[in-house]
């Protein structure tokens, strides 16, 4: 089954990242790269998004589409990347998500 994992950053996580020294940050990135390498046979596709301040939202509906600055929900949690994985079932996806070494929230949804 195919699932998409959405990696969600929190304000607190962003602050922690900010506070890291250069070596520490390098180690953190390395852990992420290792996770992708360890799971490469399951990951079919993945993207990392540019920071949330670059987001633009278009709302379509009645009348003219409205373009606004920022993400579609103003919140403390923002999606920072996606990975599409191909695994046997939800348990296998959950196991992958548990070993994710970076941002503190991962949402898992099956691809319909």
């Amino acid at each position: 089954m195919k699932y998409v994992m959405m990696f969600v950053e929190t304000e607190e996580f962003a602050k922690q990242l900010e506070a890291m020294g250069e070596l520490e940050r390098e180690a953190a990135y390395e852990a992420v790269l290792r996770w992708f390498a360890d799971n490469s046979d399951r990951i079919t596709h993945h993207v990392h998004l540019a920071p949330v301040h670059t987001a633009t939202t278009v709302r379509l509906g009645t009348g003219e589409p409205v373009v606004t600055d920022g993400p579609f929900v103003e919140g403390k949690e923002v999606v920072s990347g996606f990975a599409e994985v191909d695994v046997a079932d939800l348990d296998e996806a959950l196991r992958m998500a548990r070993s994710w070494p970076a941002c503190p929230v991962v949402e898992i949804r099956p691809v319909s």
Binding site: D89, D91, P110, S112
Partner: peptide, 9 residues
């Protein structure tokens, strides 16, 4: 739909 398996973990 979410692929919750039918097996012992």
């Amino acid at each position: 739909e979410a692929g919750i398996p039918y097996r012992i973990p």
